[in-house]
């Protein structure tokens, strides 16, 4: 089946795929996870961008602020800086926030 999982991977690029750096030298347009501070402030009482999470795809641990945020999409998509697996998705649907955190195996949140 050549890399298909048969599941909608919450995660990253399938194994054995080509690199993503552009041959044309063009990079990718994304933001730092910092930019999630506003949207997440509507849901959480403390700043979540400093929380550190473990990527469920590759095991790398990074702060939400350090991950890569893609905003030109139907929802904001946060990706692991190591493997580019999806960590988090959040979007606004009228008066609701729809938050998908399944790309993290856990989050460590500093309670001060």
């Amino acid at each position: 089946m050549n890399g298909w999982t048969g599941r909608p991977a919450p995660g990253g690029p399938g194994a054995g795929e080509r690199g993503t750096g552009g041959p044309d030298g063009l990079g990718e347009d994304y933001l730092d996870g910092n930019a999630l501070a506003g949207p997440l402030s509507e849901v959480f009482l403390i700043d979540m961008t400093s929380a550190r999470g473990r990527c469920d795809s590759c095991g790398a641990v990074s702060a939400i602020a350090e991950a890569r945020l893609y905003v030109n999409a139907p929802a904001m998509v946060l990706r692991c800086p190591s493997c580019s697996g999806v960590l988090l998705r959040v979007r606004r649907d009228g008066g609701q926030a729809v938050l998908d955190l399944r790309g993290f195996s856990y989050l460590t949140i500093d309670l001060g």
Partner: peptide, 9 residues
Amino acid sequence: VRGPVGGWF
């Protein structure tokens, strides 16, 4: 306006 927000940068 929402914020100021952000605790990392």
